[in-house]
Computed example of a mutant assay.
Amino acid sequence: MTKKEDGTFAYVGGPEDFPKQHKAPVINIGVADTGKFIMTASSDTTILIWDLKGEVLASINTNQMNNAFAAVSPCGRFVASCGFTPDVKVWEVCFSKSGDFREVARAFELKGHTAGVYSFSFSNDSRRMATVSKDSTWKLWDTDVEYKKQQDPYLLLTGKCDVAEPCRIALSPDARALAISCSTSIFVYNTREGKEEERFENVHGEHITDLAFDVNSRFLVSCGDRAIRVFHNTAGYRAVVEEMKVLLKKATNESTKQRLQQQITDAQNSLESIYSKSK
């Protein structure tokens, strides 16, 4: 940050070259939202944890034959990777109360696929994860577990998807919908029953390289060629309506009923607005 003559502040970005540490090409980079570390993963089995000045804090050997994908969780606590083996490995990057780096500790693994995992995604609070595999399935997991007591994540749902590389999966921040890209097409599923709700075919001229929902779960964004495509998350809106209707039947408090009804109305209005514009 630099202070200007009028007293206001401006941010000036400067390039910083980190020392060459990886022996294979870097395939993923992630920055913790806490600002405490940077993660880089290469195509061999190496993940490095750096501080923001370019010092290596820790090196992780994933033991997965190769890394296919790696990411930092939205909460900034976890680093995860997948590859040739049929599981996803998750580590916790631990810091002291004063902010000093302590260690990288194994947190938990997602086990259940029968072939290598292409990609995975966290929900916004890291309490849910989604995975997609070469075994033509995707899975939704409950990762809100006491992993320090050796408790394993719970498998919530398995869905079918006939996909091949390059493939990416994105779980909406509220975990009500997920999207899978394969080549130039996108498939959107609800996470209540696992049904395919939307299909967008050949939306890019080249393979889709990344897929993400916005923080409010309203939009789905994809990139691949020289364009970024933005889609309405209609599956998410429909999931809100279904979920709130179930809760409304169980509600006994009048204020709770009104709040749930308002959420239903807002989601229905959003759907009506989206479909009216598309006609």
Rank of each mutant, 00 (worst) to 15 (best):
1 M>W: 11
4 K>L: 15
8 T>E: 12
8 T>C: 10
9 F>C: 12
12 V>H: 13
13 G>S: 14
13 G>K: 13
15 P>Y: 02
20 K>A: 15
24 A>G: 04
24 A>F: 10
25 P>W: 02
26 V>K: 01
27 I>D: 03
37 F>I: 09
39 M>D: 05
42 S>I: 03
43 S>E: 09
45 T>K: 09
47 I>Q: 03
48 L>K: 10
49 I>W: 01
52 L>F: 11
55 E>H: 06
56 V>S: 08
56 V>N: 03
57 L>Q: 06
57 L>H: 03
65 M>W: 10
65 M>S: 14
67 N>G: 06
68 A>F: 12
68 A>S: 14
71 A>N: 12
71 A>W: 00
71 A>V: 00
73 S>V: 02
74 P>Y: 01
76 G>T: 08
77 R>F: 09
82 C>S: 03
83 G>Q: 04
84 F>R: 11
87 D>N: 13
88 V>E: 05
96 S>T: 15
97 K>S: 15
100 D>K: 13
100 D>T: 12
102 R>Y: 00
109 E>G: 11
110 L>Y: 05
110 L>E: 05
111 K>P: 00
114 T>A: 13
120 F>R: 06
121 S>M: 13
122 F>H: 10
123 S>D: 09
123 S>N: 07
127 R>N: 15
128 R>G: 01
129 M>N: 07
135 D>I: 09
135 D>Y: 04
139 K>D: 01
141 W>P: 01
142 D>W: 04
144 D>E: 13
145 V>Y: 03
145 V>I: 13
151 Q>V: 13
152 D>R: 14
153 P>C: 04
155 L>Q: 13
155 L>K: 11
156 L>A: 05
160 K>Q: 12
162 D>Y: 10
167 C>V: 07
169 I>G: 01
171 L>A: 05
173 P>F: 01
173 P>W: 01
179 A>Q: 10
180 I>P: 09
183 S>E: 07
186 I>N: 02
188 V>P: 01
188 V>R: 06
193 E>P: 00
202 N>R: 14
206 E>W: 13
209 T>W: 08
211 L>K: 11
212 A>V: 15
214 D>W: 03
215 V>R: 15
216 N>F: 12
217 S>K: 02
219 F>E: 10
221 V>F: 10
223 C>K: 12
223 C>Y: 02
225 D>K: 03
227 A>C: 13
229 R>N: 14
231 F>R: 08
232 H>A: 14
239 A>W: 05
239 A>C: 08
240 V>T: 13
241 V>G: 06
242 E>T: 09
245 K>M: 08
247 L>G: 00
247 L>P: 00
248 L>C: 07
251 A>P: 08
255 S>I: 10
256 T>R: 08
258 Q>A: 15
260 L>Y: 08
260 L>S: 01
261 Q>S: 11
261 Q>F: 00
262 Q>A: 05
262 Q>G: 06
264 I>R: 04
265 T>Q: 09
267 A>Q: 04
273 S>Q: 14
273 S>N: 11
273 S>T: 14
274 I>W: 07
274 I>S: 02
275 Y>L: 12
279 K>D: 07
279 K>I: 12
279 K>G: 12
